[in-house]
Design a protein around this nucleic acid. Structure first.
Lengths: 157, 157
DNA sequence: GAAAACGATTCATGCTCTGAATGATTCTCA
DNA sequence: TGAGAATCATTCAGAGCATGAATCGTTTTC
């Protein structure tokens, strides 16, 4: 039976054998699951809100919205909406930069840090469920490769 | 300096340390890159079109649109639009099931197979570029883990 | 043979995101 | 110094993708 599926012609390249395909489908699935979890918190949070808080926590306080937009890879106008919502939750503070009053400096508040911590905890819970049964060595290698790729692509984190 | 970042309180759980976060961001990045490539083909193809062709190729001809919708995890009405477009390209054939004339049986044409092959080739090219420099052993392990997860989640492929 | 169930299709709508236009502030440099 | 270019945040209209309800034809059930 070996080779039977090739009877009709040359071996067709299999898309499902690519990392591109697997990363895309698995990534979308995981993101959907995560979206549902943070939505259940009831604060109207979407992954991009968490992303914004994450870069805010990572790159220290006092980033302009322009910086954030670049860091997140989104349009500046979207950062406005994200920041509006987070500000409404008290998770983020907006202050005009005294040195350049065009800029809005965003800072994560203590409440924001607490909220981000909850979102991070949800991520860890989800990891446990999704990767249940995957050997620790495999998990670590997966994480190492993904982190390396993220760094190469200039992704946040 | 060790532990300095914890000065202000308990060690905050780090979202960027989760597979959830990494799979989400890296997956979205890779999907964007792939979307741009297949778009450059000029056939108006989006990842879901390729997904539809992929399950059609994998699960043999003669699937109803209802089946496909379940397999892809999308609403049946979306399959209509996807199939419309692919039919317009000559990549897919629509035939009423003689045994149940409510059903539309979708079949990948030879042209469809050729188109899918091109899309798969693009995926492999992208793999080469994105994973350039990643050791073969790591690539294989990455793929194995992702394939296992995809199977567990019931994803196509 | 009537009613319920099922499949495909259309359509209106929601959601996310973008890019252009606007207003305020700062920078450039003649 | 002062006029025009550049920069930042914001608003707003609109594109694009996906969904769910309504509809029509077909089949199943009893």
């Amino acid at each position: 039976m070996i080779g039977m599926k090739d009877v009709k012609g040359a071996d067709s390249p299999d898309l499902t054998a690519t990392a591109t395909f697997r990363l895309g489908t698995v990534g979308a699935y995981v993101t959907d699951a995560y979206t549902a979890r943070i939505d259940a918190l009831g604060f109207g949070l979407r992954p991009k809100h968490v992303g914004l808080m994450t870069v805010l926590a990572a790159e220290g306080p006092g980033r302009s919205q322009q910086d954030l937009a670049r860091g997140l890879g989104v349009a500046p106008s979207l950062v406005v909406a994200l920041a509006d919502h987070l500000e409404g939750l008290g998770a983020v503070r907006r202050e005009r930069d005294p040195a350049d009053r065009r800029r809005q400096l965003l800072t994560l508040t203590d409440e924001g840090r607490a909220l981000l911590a909850r979102c991070a905890a949800i991520g860890h819970e989800l990891d446990e469920e999704l990767l249940d049964g995957v050997p620790r060595a495999d998990r670590e290698r997966l994480h190492a490769v993904l982190a390396a790729l993220a760094g190469r692509f200039g992704l946040p984190g």
